[in-house]
Design a protein around this nucleic acid. Structure first.
Lengths: 209, 209
DNA sequence: CCTACCGATCGGTAGG
DNA sequence: CCTACCGATCGGTAGG
């Protein structure tokens, strides 16, 4: 069997290449590329071949790191929610305890908009891909979303509790309005043409009444 | 040539069926089905086979009425914008000339939300499919969008012009916030669980300050 | 409006 | 991590 040595060498080379590539890093590179593509192209238009090309490997090699396209999408989506969650809770945590309700709201809006518009492909990718993803992926993402929504329910609850007047708006609607105006911003926002700080202050002014 | 008569008969039957089907109606049926599917599944997931099946014809027969998938999508998207435009301008037109700014705003929001959430698959389909559609389709839709946005610029302009105070919000941001909270509503709205009238009043209360 | 079909592309797999 | 490949599906076309 003259061919055996050659065959074995090929398999060895493959295993070697795989080991040399320090897996966790490749995994992250794939997720980064997927997030960027999902953000701009959406779930259906983003192919495994696109992702592979973006990280300089072949399409089939994706399966060395992940078991399916949806495993990648799920990871991006869950990460995306967790990133805004971390950004917003961190921003609130860093505020002095003497800070006003308005300051808390502005800080939260700034953190959310920054993640969505500038810092995290993951967050905007998740927002864009959610409805096109299969049920199993969505179900997993929903858990992360609920935790994040609770932060806003808390924040908005503080606001509505301290207000009164003829024009009462339910906390639920106020939270949905807040998330609506923020999450719709990728539709019109263009980098450089608007200041996120100014936007956050204006959004807060609209919500605080 | 014994087969000639049979062949000719098949062609005749086809032409006959086409003529019997009173084209304009079939065209509208196809667009209705496409709008409904595009609304729920989006641009990529909606196939010509889906649309054909929904109206009870074969996939290839779509091309008897349209030249391409994108021609259908463009028609749905443009119609969708025109429908909200008509709904909102009609609602404003029917208001008595003595109506207040708040009444005008509530009427416009009600009309927009009704079209988006209840009356028009076309409008929500356009909103959902816009970013996945090819450039040529988007370019056409943009013209319709601009005309509709002008209605809101006018309405919001009236509001900001009559207000003053330390918390001034630019008309642009206020318009974007208004359209944002409205256009995000398909994300959480479920028929029957919310009253569009109540929502419209709450949204108006948030925007009027 | 139907039948039959084409080229392109996609997610995924086998074997090394 | 690569090569080579598969079955499924898609938009679109030819001919009647």
């Amino acid at each position: 069997m003259a061919t055996r040595p050659a065959e074995k060498s090929a398999a060895q080379k493959a295993r070697l290449a795989a080991q040399q590539s320090s897996e966790p890093q490749s995994r992250r590179e794939i997720l980064d590329a997927a997030a960027r593509l999902l953000r701009t192209q959406g779930y259906r238009a983003t192919t495994l071949r696109d992702i592979a090309e973006a990280v300089g490997i072949k399409a089939g090699s994706i399966y060395y790191h992940f078991n399916s396209k949806d495993e990648i999408v799920a990871a991006v989506m869950n990460d995306g929610v967790d990133r805004v969650y971390e950004a917003v809770t961190a921003a609130l945590r860093e505020l002095p305890s003497t800070s006003s309700q308005r300051e808390r709201l502005v800080a939260a809006i700034t953190a959310h908009l920054s993640a969505l518009l500038e810092h995290s492909d993951y967050t905007s990718a998740g927002l864009k891909s959610y409805h096109d993803a299969p049920d199993t992926v969505r179900a997993a993402a929903r858990q992360h979303r609920r935790r994040y929504e609770a932060v806003w329910s808390q924040l908005i609850g503080e606001i509505t509790a301290s207000r009164s007047g003829p024009d009462k708006v339910s906390p639920e609607t106020l939270r949905r309005a807040a998330l609506g105006m923020m999450n719709w911003s990728p539709e019109w926002y263009r980098t450089g043409r608007y200041s996120i700080n100014t936007l956050a202050n204006e959004f807060a002014a609209i919500l605080l009444r």
